[in-house]
Nucleic acid binder design. Structure first.
Lengths: 187, 187
DNA sequence: GCTGTTTTTTGACAAAAGTCAAAAAGCCAA
DNA sequence: TTGGCTTTTTGACTTTTGTCAAAAAACAGC
């Protein structure tokens, strides 16, 4: 829990009251590798903070698993579309390593937002950061070549390569596993 | 201004106080076609609401203009990265048609956020919606073919095709103008 | 209605990336 | 260490998309 409070401070520092309220709404979960945190067609009712471990969001396309994001230490993860709209998810969330997570239910978060303006602000600022991050990924996906995307990954998030099978990385970069393998061999 | 207040209501309905405060912070701008609202390397200090007209965000890549978003009636537009971080923008914002815009300065928005919790909430909810929208575009860009992306555009945002030169649409879809032309001819 | 400009289309070719199948390498547990 | 699995790489070929150049069409101003 200390990690969560520390991490939140970087977005927007909360007062004692808000911190305690947050504290009371999050519960710890220890889950083993490969566990499915969310299955598609179910509505995602929780937001998770990753204290330790790695996980991914993926969905099926023509029988293939497409990984479209990873979560590691200090990331907030959920199926955003499903969590925000409370409609069934298209994606699955799966643990790539055994994890220590902190989970908060949508309803509890809503209550927190009503009771603590500071938490509303925290969330707004968090969205700003996540929006910018997604925008960068979008520009990468749309306007860069496969090799450039891989090089970006190497410089910006090399830990992904160390902790995740290349098959997942390939779909994360939007390329086939074979192409990724060839790019790696000629660098 | 009526359009702005009406539009905001769809995100989160504001009380009288907050509405008036908003009202006082936005100023109207009438600008002619082709005007540059923002030039790259300048910091974007305003958020705009489009009452009437069309505009685009674009940047230069190897001497080519890459359009990465459009704004039309009832859109909020700005260079999000620059506006949020108050650092120089990589992109330009240009009017594709003459426009009626409502503009608010970053500082005034910050003040509003401090004075009206409702507006903080409104903004948080707006970010949620914009985040989801961007996520969909990202998945499209990364995992769909050029033809599929064009068909999506046709069904989901056909107004873009009616109001914007195909050259801009092509880069918006992440394909060359020639490829777009060929896709269109064989549908 | 004509001219000059911009936008869009077409053609020939090149480059990038995908597919399918098989081989190689890594990993794990008996 | 030795099979039996999974993951990664390699090879041959196909498909998709990009590039460059030129033609055709659309548009604006006179």
């Amino acid at each position: 829990m200390e990690a969560l409070l520390q991490h939140i401070k970087k977005f927007y520092p909360l007062g004692q009251d808000a911190q305690e309220a947050l504290y009371n709404c999050f519960t710890q979960k220890q889950l083993p590798k490969n566990e499915l945190l969310l299955q598609h067609d179910n509505t995602c009712r929780h937001l998770y903070f990753v204290e330790k471990g790695a996980l991914r969001g993926f969905y099926n396309l023509d029988g293939k698993e497409i990984t479209h994001w990873f979560g590691f230490e200090n990331d907030f993860v959920t199926s955003f579309h499903s969590f925000i709209t409370q409609t069934p998810a298209v994606e699955n969330i799966q643990l790539l390593e055994s994890c220590t997570l902190w989970s908060i239910a949508k309803d509890d978060l809503t209550t927190l937002l009503n009771q603590h303006q500071e938490i509303e602000r925290l969330l707004r600022i968090a969205y700003e950061k996540y929006y910018i991050r997604l925008e960068e990924r979008f520009v990468n996906a749309q306007f860069k070549t496969a090799a450039e995307r891989y090089e970006n990954l190497l410089t910006q998030t090399p830990h992904i390569l160390e902790r995740v099978p290349l098959g997942c990385v390939a779909s994360y970069l939007g390329i086939s596993q074979e192409t990724l393998s060839r790019i790696r061999s000629r660098l």
